[in-house]
Design a protein around this nucleic acid. Structure first.
Lengths: 212, 212
DNA sequence: TGTACATCAGTGAACGCGCGTTCACTGATGTAC
DNA sequence: TGTACATCAGTGAACGCGCGTTCACTGATGTAC
């Protein structure tokens, strides 16, 4: 069968999309070529008309998942100021829904640990996309953030990612909920601190003994 | 060959120890029975004199890794007050050494995401051990921590875990170092906040700025 | 417009390999006498 | 103390299965004339 113009591109995209979900759900080693193709409604043999190898697909799917995340984050944050951005992000990010549906969720939390075990290509993708996320959260309306702001954005993201990883590892019971709550509180306090600091003036931090 | 009294227990422990390292390095799916036994100096067939199945070993090895972490944390923190505990922990936890040697490091960071994909047994182990870690970091000398203190301990741990996961995913270059630094700064600021809050009420702690 | 041919995404059997698991066997040491 | 037997941690060949990959083939549609 020979298909219309961009039929191949569409199928390719469908495989990638499906893989990006399944990888986040089952891990980098948890998804087989045959299962994947079956899910897309094809047979496994056709896979190699689209990808050189399983590894190539994994890389592409992870990159795609990260891109989706970036879009989601961008929509969520709009042009709010930093502390409001963080609040908006944390509320969604640390919801039970996100915890219980990793396939549509954050790739750092789902595959970050796996990434460090994959090839340099995968790590490079993570590197680049994470850098983009940091600028997205920390940057001011398109402008690249300062070193200090980057620092805050990084640690904010780290807290979100760590909280989600721990909440998922702990299941979905009361303790897991407590973890999500703790993460939300931390984000809230962090926002408040930033707000307070900005208000209290362009200098100083804690009154007397801050000790940095 | 029939071996001395506790020879079997020793071999068993060696296998578990080896697995606990390799699992953290290569992930829950990345370690094979044959490789593992070879590393311990035995042949693969003997494995089943010690474990019912590979899955049983994985559970035992993860539990062992988590126990080791708890011991390490305990030694590191001694009977210091919370903010100093966190500082001491963060300095080691967010070091390049820890990032580059996951086999001896934190199990939450290395296998937390994997845990959520494993069976309920593994998740229960993570649940229990994490709960213990929270009490360890948040508790005051044996006493169980308050809800508020637990919250702080949880988010502190989450930040550490998330930072390490991201730093590893980003490789080990300048960006990865920046991530570690951001995590350390966050831990420091968090400690200061706690100090400030406490200070403004009951009384003081660090002389002027030294901390520790 | 109609016909012959070329293309190539997708099919499904087959291959090779690795891995978890089984099993008959070994042989050094503990135990019974 | 010495001897015969029992035990069982460990050996290594073998099995079965799943998975990534290959390959000859299909047949609907695009293209050439």
């Amino acid at each position: 069968m020979r298909y219309s113009k961009d039929h191949k591109a569409e199928t390719h995209a469908r495989i990638v999309q499906n893989a990006s979900v399944q990888l986040r759900e089952k891990g980098a080693r948890g998804v087989g070529v045959a299962d994947l193709m079956k899910d897309v409604g094809l047979t496994h043999g056709g896979f190699y008309a689209h990808f050189d190898s399983r590894d190539h697909l994994v890389n592409e799917a992870i990159a795609s998942a990260l891109d989706q995340n970036a879009v989601q984050w961008g929509e969520l944050m709009g042009d709010k100021p930093f502390e409001q951005r963080l609040k908006a992000l944390a509320d969604i990010y640390l919801s039970a829904g996100h915890r219980d549906h990793p396939g549509k969720g954050c790739t750092f939390a789902a595959l970050g640990a796996d990434a460090s075990r994959e090839g340099p290509k995968t790590r490079r993708v993570f590197h680049n996309k994470l850098d983009g996320m940091v600028n997205l959260l920390g940057g001011g309306n398109g402008k690249p953030p300062s070193t200090k702001t980057r620092q805050q954005a990084i640690s904010a993201i780290a807290t979100l990612v760590g909280t989600l990883v721990l909440a998922r590892a702990a299941g979905n019971g009361a303790f897991s909920d407590e973890i999500l709550q703790a993460g939300k509180s931390a984000a809230r306090e962090r926002s408040d601190t930033v707000i307070t600091k900005r208000k209290s003036a362009p200098h100083a931090r804690a009154p007397k003994r801050g000790a940095r």
